[in-house]
Design a protein around this nucleic acid. Structure first.
Lengths: 271, 271
DNA sequence: CGCATCCTTGAGGGCCATCAAAATGCGTGG
DNA sequence: CCACGCATTTTGATGGCCCTCAAGGATGCG
C-alpha cells in the first residue's frame, strides 16, 4: 500500500485542530461531527445551527435494529454516544458493511435516498439524536458550505467502504481484525475518545465475525492470533493494543483514507 | 437477501422513463448520466448545463491509469464510452473496489476530496469528458437541484460499495463473478447498453480476478464454473448470459441497491 | 514467425467453514 | 450468597475453497 503522506503519531498535535473535549462539552449532541477531519472549517454559526436541528435525543440500552433495510424515513440520525453497525442480512447471517463511532451522521444519506438499502444496528448502549429531513433541507438551502460538509461526510463513508473492500480482498481474518482495531482506534482518537492503551467497546466476538466476514468461531481464533502475537487483546468491553506499530504493520494499515486533519494536504475544502 | 420490492423484467417499461438512445444522441457527452435512475427528474436546462461544462473529451485507446492514488486534481471525469475500474494497489497486486459504465461521473467525489484515496484505471478503449472543479462549483452554486443530483450520484457509488462488501463476505468466487455479471448487465441496461443475450466488455480474466478478490487462476475456474452450470459464458470481449434467472439466483442478486427508476418507491428526490 | 498477453489445467497446501462440545461470565431470582 | 439460565467465548476435528507453484495452449500483433 503506497502511503500518501505522513500521519502524525499524535493526531491532536496538528495545527488548526479543535480541542475534542471542549467541542463535545459545548455542543453535546453534535460536537464530535467531523471532529479530527474538517470540523475546524465549521464556523461557530454552523456548529450552532447543526446542534440546533437535533430535535430529540434518545438512549437505547440494548443492541437493536434502529432502522431496517427498506424502511422509509423522514429523519436522519446522529450517533452521539456508543457504536453502531451498518449491516445487510442474508439467509440467517448478518454481514457488517461499516462501523460507526460517536460524531458519525450515520444515515445522512437517507436524506437523499429516503429508503436505505441496509440496516442500522446499535451495538451496546447508544445515545442518538434525530434530525428531520425537512430541517436538514432548510439548513442546507441557506448554508451552502454546511451542505458541502454534509456531502463530504457521506464521501468519507464511501472511502471507508473502499478500504473495507480492499481489506476483505487481500487480508487474512486475523489481519482484517487487526485492521478493524487499527481503524477504530484512529477514528476514536479523532473524536477525542479512546486512550493510550486502546479503547472501550461493547462489541462481541459475534459482531467482530460479522465485520470480518467470518464465523464467530474463526473470529475467536483471530482474536487469539493477535493475542499470541503480542499485538492486541480483546476482552468483553475492551480492546487493548499492546503494540501499535506491530498492529498497523500486520494490518497493512495506512490511515490516509480516513482523511484526517493531520493529513491536511489531502483535501482542500475551504470554499 | 430480503427483497425490497419488485423490479420490472424490462427496466425500460417503467413509466416516466427517458428513452436511453434519444438521450445519448441529444447529449453525446452526458446523456447517460443518471439514466435509468433519476435522469427523468432533470430538466432540459439542467441537462444542457451539464453537457455544457464538459470542457474537453478524449479517447484513450489502451488500458491505463487515468488518475493515480494521491494525485491532486482540479477536474472531474465523466465516463462517456467504455469501462473503468477503481482500484487500490497493495504489494504487487491490484484490487478493484468498483466498476464503472458509461454515464458514470467516476471521480465526482474528487471535487470534494481533491485527492483520491484510490486509482482510476481504464479498461479497454474509453472516451472520457473532463469538467473543471471551478465549473462544477459555479453550476452547483446556482443550481441547487443539480447539486443534489450530484450528491445522489456519489451516494449510489457508496451503495455499490456496500453490495460489493456483502458479496465478498458471503459468496464463493464463482458466485461473486455471477454477481458482477448480473450487476453489470443491469447497469448497462439502465443506460441503454447491453443486449438481450448479454453485453460486450473488454474485461480480461485478470480484471475479473481483481474484481472478485481472487487470483487470475481461480477467476478462470470461476468462469468455467458458470459455463458448466449453463449460466453464462465469457469470451474475450463478450459476456453471454444463458440463463438470467439462474444467474441472479446463483449470485443472490437483488437489484434494489441500484436505486433504479423501476423501483421508484425507493427514493423520493423530487425537491 | 516470434513475442507478448491471455487463457487453461494440474498438484499440493493453507485458510477458513462446519459440526460438535465444553468452559466462562453475567444477570436474575431464590 | 448461591443456583440457574443464557449468551458468549474457547477448543478440537474434518472437509472444502482458494492460494501458490508449475507448465502448457491459444490468440493477436508487429
Amino acid at each position: 500500500m503506497r502511503p500518501l503522506g505522513q500521519f502524525a503519531a499524535n493526531v491532536y498535535a496538528a495545527k488548526r485542530m479543535t480541542d475534542p473535549n471542549a467541542e463535545a462539552v459545548r455542543y453535546p449532541f453534535t460536537g464530535r461531527f467531523l471532529l479530527g477531519r474538517l470540523r475546524e472549517l465549521m464556523s461557530d454559526e454552523e456548529k450552532a445551527l447543526l446542534e440546533g436541528i437535533i430535535e430529540r435525543t434518545e438512549w437505547i440500552d440494548k443492541p437493536s435494529r434502529l432502522i431496517a433495510r427498506g424502511e422509509k424515513t423522514d429523519h436522519s440520525t446522529m450517533l452521539i454516544d456508543g457504536f453502531m453497525l451498518r449491516t445487510l442480512d442474508d439467509t440467517g447471517r448478518r454481514h457488517a458493511v461499516s462501523f460507526h463511532v460517536p460524531g458519525d451522521f450515520v444515515d445522512l444519506h437517507a436524506f437523499a435516498l429516503k429508503r436505505l438499502d441496509h440496516n442500522i444496528d446499535t451495538v451496546g448502549r447508544v445515545k442518538v439524536g434525530y434530525v428531520s429531513h425537512a430541517a436538514l433541507d432548510e439548513v442546507m438551502r441557506e448554508h451552502r458550505h454546511l451542505a458541502r460538509l454534509f456531502w463530504f461526510s457521506t464521501l468519507l463513508d464511501a472511502a471507508l467502504h473502499r478500504e473495507w473492500i480492499t481489506s476483505l480482498e487481500h487480508l487474512t481474518a486475523p489481519r482484517r481484525l487487526a485492521h478493524i482495531f487499527a481503524e477504530t482506534w484512529r477514528r476514536l482518537e479523532m473524536v477525542g475518545l479512546g486512550d493510550r492503551e486502546g479503547f472501550d467497546t461493547p462489541l462481541t466476538q459475534i459482531d467482530l465475525a460479522d465485520m470480518c466476514g467470518t464465523t464467530p468461531i474463526h473470529a475467536n481464533r483471530a482474536v487469539r492470533d493477535l493475542r499470541e502475537r503480542g499485538i492486541a487483546t480483546f476482552e468483553r468491553g475492551r480492546v487493548t493494543i499492546a503494540d501499535r506499530p506491530a498492529l498497523e504493520a500486520y494490518a497493512d494499515f495506512d490511515p490516509t483514507y480516513l482523511y484526517g486533519s493531520a493529513s491536511l494536504d489531502l483535501r482542500d475544502f475551504s470554499t
